Each structure stands twice: as structure tokens, then as C-alpha cells.
Amino acid sequence: MRLDAGTGPSRRGRARRSVRRLPGARARRLCGPVGRGSCRRVGAARRRADPGRMDGLRCTDRYGCPVWPDDGREGPGGTQRGSDRFLAPRGRPESLRRIDRVPVSRPAPKREETNMSTTDEMQAPASAPRDEVHETPRDDLLVLIHKALRYGLLQLTIDAGSADWTDPGCVDGLRQQWDTLEHLIRSHASHEDRYIFALLESKQPGAVAELGIGHAAVEAELDEVSARMRTACEKREPGSGLAAYRALTHLVVTALAHFSDEEPVVMERIWAESTDEEIAACRSAFMAEITPDDAVATYELMFPAVSPAELAMVLGAVRAGAPEPVFGSLVGVAERTLTPAAMARLREHLEG
């Protein structure tokens, strides 16, 4: 019989006491298989400490520690989880290569008692997002022209990205496309500054600076694209074309962010402070400056970019207030720019 007098507890005793302080598989990984009874005591201690953690467990391995019931496949140490067979490191018995995670079954948190009934909770108004869209029959001075300009910018970006910058005809077409779009963007910015923003400032002085919706950033990007596009058309080589394309994408990012920031806040404030007559007078003032060529170019971008209801509204307003030849010319623009299915939907809206 071996005595350890004067040397403290034996190594076997120290290992057993260590196992009692370590959970499940971690104890076995650190101390090795030191006996069935020790691990049974660990499992019993865990069950006493938190009985809810053992819900649904009916299997134990050969050391008495819990395992999950799975597909019924038997290994050297009992039923094993299928995923543990693939996650377990090599070089150890199957029962020791199990990841010992015990599912936790905790009760749902109790709902705080309030004086509000269920019906009141369902009817309680939620906080509206900053740029929430409000359906309104009032005239929106920005949304349709912004849709047209978005369409033009994105279409030109696609065309520039797929263009053969060494082909003179392709390059000349891109240059013409850009010149038209740049003119429309600058013209719209001028209309905003002199009419739409002027109406807003007359009601709320300092609102444009407060909202940060000036056009300095967009105009700087327009100048950059114009310079890059001019260089690309002169050199007609892929490197300069790629530089023009990248400058165009920067403009798209700046312009789209500007449109999205500007539309909701400007029109909400104008609607809150202005009458329908004032808004109509503002529209009439800048529409009077648009030339027939600019109108056709705008409608060519707008018609495929707006919804059928919006398009029917535009053509209905033109038919009601313009000579028949003008309305006929716009129908011709729609036939050139819309798909047959979209044109059929437009006719249904106009006839209805």
C-alpha cells in the first residue's frame, strides 16, 4: 500500500478535486478520463445548480455527462451529435471529442404591466422616420424632374461603362448625351435657386442654409465630369475614357444623395407654409423659361422614369392646358421611349 505521508494529497486526489471544479468536456480535456463517479458528481452538481439547463436531455456518455439525443447513431461513448463528429479534433476517443454545450431553456421574460390596454398599444402612434413619404394631392415641384435626372445619370453611367472609347461614333454619342444632361441639371438647379428656394426663403428665411441643400457640391462635380469628358473625346483612348467614367460615378453619388435629401424636407416646408396658388405661381414662373427643345429632352428622360399614374397625370395636364399638337408631340415622345406594355398601361390611364 502506497502512502503519501508529508507530501499532501495524491495526484489522483488532486485530479478528482480539479474535475469537480470544471464543467463536463472541459474537465475531461484538461484532466483526462479520471473515473465515472467524479463526472457523475459534476453532472449532478450542475443539475442542482440550474435544473432548467437539463430540460430535454435523456442521454449520458460513459462518464455520466449529458449528451444530446440526435439521430440514434452509437459511438464508443454513447449517442453523439452529428455535427460533433465533424467538429471534434482527431486523436481522442469519440466520446471525448464531443463539444459539451448544454442547451439552455430559460423562461420568457415577463411583460411589464402598464395601464395601456392591448387595443391602445395597437393604436399607439409610432415615431415617423425623418424622410417618411406622405401621400398628398398637392403639387410636388421636385419629384418628377428628379426622377428624370436620376434616369439620365444612371443611363449615361451604364453607357459610359460599356462604351468603346476608341470608336469615334460611340464617343461622339456619349459627348452629346452628356451635354444634354449637363444642361438639364444646371437649368434645374437654376430654377430651384431662383424660384423654389426663393419661395421657401420667403416663408422661412435661412432655411436653405439650415437644410444644407445648396448646389455647390453638385456644380463642382459637373465641372469635373465636363473636363474629363472633353479630354476623353479628344484623346479617344481607354485610359481617359475610364477617368471620365469614374468622374461620372462620383457625380451620380453626389447628385442622388442631394435629390434624396432635398425632396422631402423642401416640399414639406413649402406645403406647410404656402398656398396652392403660390405653388402654382412658382411652377408657372420656371416653366415659362423652358424652351421646347429642353421640354422634349426632359420628357424623354421623364417618361420611362415615372410611374404610369404620374405619366398619365403629366399628359392629362398637358392635354387640358395646351394645344392639341403639343399633346400629340408628347404622345409621340411616349411611344419612342416606353415599352409596348408601358404604352398600353398609359393609354388605359388616359382613357380611364
Rank of each mutant, 00 (worst) to 15 (best):
V225N: 02
S260E: 11
G212V: 12
K147T: 02
G52T: 15
E234K: 08
Y245H: 11
M267A: 12
P33V: 14
D139L: 08
G173H: 15
A217T: 12
F197C: 03
G161C: 12
A281L: 04
I99T: 15
V225A: 05
Y151E: 06
L174V: 08
G13N: 10
L142W: 04
L174D: 10
H188F: 10
E192Y: 06
L346E: 00
A288W: 00
S105D: 14
H215A: 14
H188K: 08
V306H: 05
P107E: 13
A189V: 12
L142S: 02
A232L: 04
R73Y: 04
L149C: 06
T136Q: 08
V67T: 14
G52A: 15
P125Y: 00
P103K: 07
G24Q: 15
E210Y: 03
R53V: 14
L156Q: 08
E310L: 03
V318I: 09
R345V: 00
P340E: 02
P125A: 01
A243H: 02
H146F: 12
L200Q: 01
R36C: 14
P103S: 13
E351H: 01
M229H: 01
P76F: 12
H349E: 00
A220W: 09
L22E: 15
V333W: 07
E221G: 02
D167G: 04
A198I: 05
T249L: 09
G321W: 07
T291V: 04
K110T: 12
A312K: 00
G6V: 05
L156I: 03
R12K: 07
A124D: 01
Y299G: 02
L211M: 13
L184V: 05
L199P: 01
T60I: 14
D139T: 05
E237C: 11
A297S: 11
R111Q: 05
G152C: 04
E262F: 14
R17E: 14
T157W: 06
R21A: 15
F259D: 05
Q123F: 03
V102S: 03
I290P: 00
G52H: 13
F286S: 05
D172N: 04
A124R: 03
D167H: 11
G332W: 02
R21K: 13
V326K: 04
F197R: 03
T79H: 08
V225S: 05
V225H: 06
C170V: 14
A217Q: 07
A280C: 01
R98P: 04
A281I: 00
R36M: 15
T7E: 12
S187L: 13
P109Q: 11
V67M: 06
A341K: 02
V34R: 11
A281C: 03
R2N: 09
A25I: 12
E289R: 10
R194K: 09
E300L: 07
T60P: 07
R62H: 13
R40G: 15
W165I: 09
N115Q: 07
D139Q: 00
R62E: 13
G37T: 15
R81T: 10
M313G: 03
L200E: 05
L144V: 01
A5I: 08
R41C: 08
L301C: 11
E310T: 00
G328N: 04
D276M: 10
L184E: 11
R11L: 07
L315V: 05
G241N: 08
R150E: 13
K203E: 07
V102T: 13
P205C: 13
D167F: 11
P66F: 15
G332I: 01
I270M: 04
L174R: 06
F86S: 09
R58F: 11
R21C: 13
R319E: 04
M122T: 08
P93K: 09
L57G: 07
